[in-house]
Design a binder for these strands. Structure first.
Length: 567
RNA sequence: CGGGGUGUAGCUCAGUAUGGUUAGAGUACCUGGUUUGGGACCAGGGGGCCGAAGGUUCGAGUCCUUUCACCCCGACCA
């Protein structure tokens, strides 16, 4: 492509509402433009990057034996009613009626559609396993789209679905998809981590997220210093600590603790480590029909992990509770303890099971119990892992320690099981001629989010730095001064040669000055820019390497060889 | 959905407290000239329903009412 003919509207200034590097540079360099909240146009460069990423995905999916399909974007609402997700998805589903008043939704994900496609077409265990995927625009009417391509309402996602005769085969495919996803991210040149994840609303028996490591990521992940263990903070677990602080001594007793309401005050009052105190976090948990207040108890040194708390209660949603609501139940904020279970449902953190030497609220104003032995609750209470891991906690897999980092979730793979196949009655006949629902896996990867993630991880103050398999063009040929015939001639020759070799090349033949064109090349982020300029008089040109900011001086006659060597 | 903010030229913004010529700057764009290794310079030029609707006023970008859009924090979220 000739730059003089290309539609690449670069700007010096960023849109005022852009905050993330990827958003700023993708806008400034003319890859995307915003249309409305969470909606973007892809201009030629943006479209090329999308296609590059899709190419990598398609190749790896093909190697892994998956087949590409394309399902309709507009999906009948009936299907969503059948699976029950029309309510669960709520306002995120964009609904509308056609001229015949039939209700449709724009596809936010395609489990229902894919199951519908396969049911009654794949009918025998002999046809299994089968892995079908598509790369397609999705629409979710997000409450708050943000960060450019990172969280749009309309976005491009690769979504794959596998069908199996049994769990073991689904597990095998799940591992194969994890491998394939790994290869995709490696080819795209990304630094990432595969982490354990909460399965969330989609459900199923297990899931993993692919996190691109970036400070601007919206997710916190805990990773081990020694082994491969990594988990989203929502799902991270730990080995209970062994370096216990000194336990308080004495017998069970009730103490006056006037106005001592916080864990810090309590620990200071008794001169003990917060590890030996019991914290109560009250939440209102919301079920499909009703809601209730649940008291979550954990060690004073821990914090409640809300996703874990939600799962422990089997609830749909969890919200805060006011002091007034607690008082109505006869609970006294600041002095709530686990020994009186009559006023609300209790959930105890698993690490409180059998705990001794504890200090906890006495459920009376200004009173705490000391030296409580919680093993008396072993039978009566409900224990669950509800604590959020802390930095420095012990890895659950080895003796390393956990630390936190931020990640961008670019992929999420699920062991779905029979949730959707059972709901939609998608069955096959097994060896015994018995009807069974498909055992399914589902594998998502955010294509447009990957565009942003690549730039979040690969940019400097001057602009984008595309990795080799994501770059819109591999080489940019910059003719410094188009009034110099020799420069132009070499540029044209090189341009023709590289094109013939199938190397995607841009020829910057604009009547602009050197600095202007360099800034532009840096902003766009071509991996290599050939600078044809003054030194041509001595037969030399330069290759500017965007990733390292190096300029390599090369004999004009050896440019093609050198470029082939580099890419 | 709660809290906050912003809408003026393609883009980034001034002007609005205290209403008053023809609404400004920078940048981008067009013409001509000079320049040509780090977003050049000079001269000339085009470009605006001041988010929308209603109102107050002799007069509204500026005041009032309504409304829409976008952004940020939170809630929510593959």
């Amino acid at each position: 492509m000739r730059r003089s003919r290309a539609f690449i509207p670069t700007t010096k200034e960023a849109p005022s509402d852009a905050t993330l590097a990827s958003h700023i540079f993708l806008s400034r360099a003319g890859f995307v433009s915003q249309v409305a909240s969470g909606l973007y146009n892809y201009m030629p460069l943006g479209k090329r990057v999308i296609k590059k990423i899709e190419k990598v995905i398609n190749e790896e999916m093909s190697k892994a034996g998956a087949q590409e399909v394309e399902l309709s974007f507009v999906t009948p609402a009936d299907l969503w009613a059948e699976s029950g997700r029309i309510e669960k998805f709520g306002k995120e589903l964009l609904r509308f009626r056609d001229r015949k008043e039939n209700l449709f939704v724009l596809g936010p994900t395609h489990e229902e559609m894919m199951v519908d496609l396969v049911r009654n077409r794949v009918t025998s265990y002999k046809q299994l396993p089968m892995n079908l995927y598509q790369i397609k625009t999705k629409f979710r009417d997000e409450a708050r789209p943000r960060f450019g391509l990172m969280r749009g309402r309309e976005f491009i996602m690769k979504d794959g679905y596998s069908f199996h005769a049994n769990e073991a085969d689904m597990d095998r495919e799940f591992d194969a998809m994890e491998e394939a996803y790994k290869k995709i991210l490696i080819r795209l040149g990304l630094d990432f981590r595969i982490v354990e994840a909460d399965s969330g609303a989609i459900g199923g028996s297990g899931s993993k997220e692919l996190m691109v490591i970036a400070g601007s990521g919206e997710d916190t992940i805990a990773i081990c210093s020694k082994c491969e263990y990594g988990a989203n903070i929502e799902a991270a677990i730990r080995t209970p600590r062994t370096d216990l602080p000194e336990a308080p001594e004495g017998a069970f007793n009730k103490f006056q603790t006037p106005a001592i309401k916080t864990i810090d005050d309590l620990a200071a009052f008794f001169k003990i480590d917060p590890y030996y105190t019991i914290k109560c976090v009250a939440k209102r948990v919301i079920y499909e029909e009703d809601s209730e207040i649940v008291l979550y108890f954990l060690r004073g040194s821990d914090n409640l992990q809300e996703v874990k708390a939600l799962n422990a209660a089997g609830a749909l949603d969890i919200t805060d509770v006011s002091e007034e609501e607690l008082q109505e139940l006869g609970l006294i904020p600041g002095f709530i303890g686990p020994l009186d279970q009559s006023k609300a449902k209790h959930v105890m953190d698993i690490e409180l099971k059998g705990a001794t030497s504890m200090v906890c609220g006495a459920n009376e104003s200004d009173q705490h119990f000391v030296n409580v032995d919680l093993s008396i609750l072993d039978e009566a209470a409900y224990f669950y892992d509800i604590a959020e891991v802390n930095e420095g906690d012990c890895c659950p897999r080895c003796d390393g320690t956990l630390s936190f980092t931020k990640g961008i979730e670019v992929g999420h793979i699920f062991k779905l099981g029979t949730t959707y196949s059972a709901a939609l009655k998608a069955e096959f006949l097994d060896e015994n001629g018995k009807a069974q629902p498909f055992v399914m896996g589902t594998y998502g990867m955010g294509v447009s989010r990957l565009v942003a993630a690549i730039i979040e991880q690969n940019h400097d103050e001057n602009g984008c730095i595309w990795t080799k398999e994501s770059a819109p063009y591999m080489v940019n040929i910059m003719v410094s001064n188009i009034k110099e015939d020799a420069q132009v001639a070499l540029g044209e020759e090189l341009y023709a040669n590289l094109n013939n070799l199938g190397i995607e090349t841009m020829l910057d033949d604009r009547k602009e000055r050197f600095g202007f064109k360099m800034k532009d090349a840096e902003l766009i982020g071509f991996p290599y820019t050939v600078i044809i300029g003054k030194e041509l008089e001595s037969g030399l040109a330069e290759i500017y390497v965007r990733a390292t900011n190096e300029k390599i001086s090369v004999n004009a006659s050896e440019l093609v060889t050198k470029i082939r060597e580099l890419i």
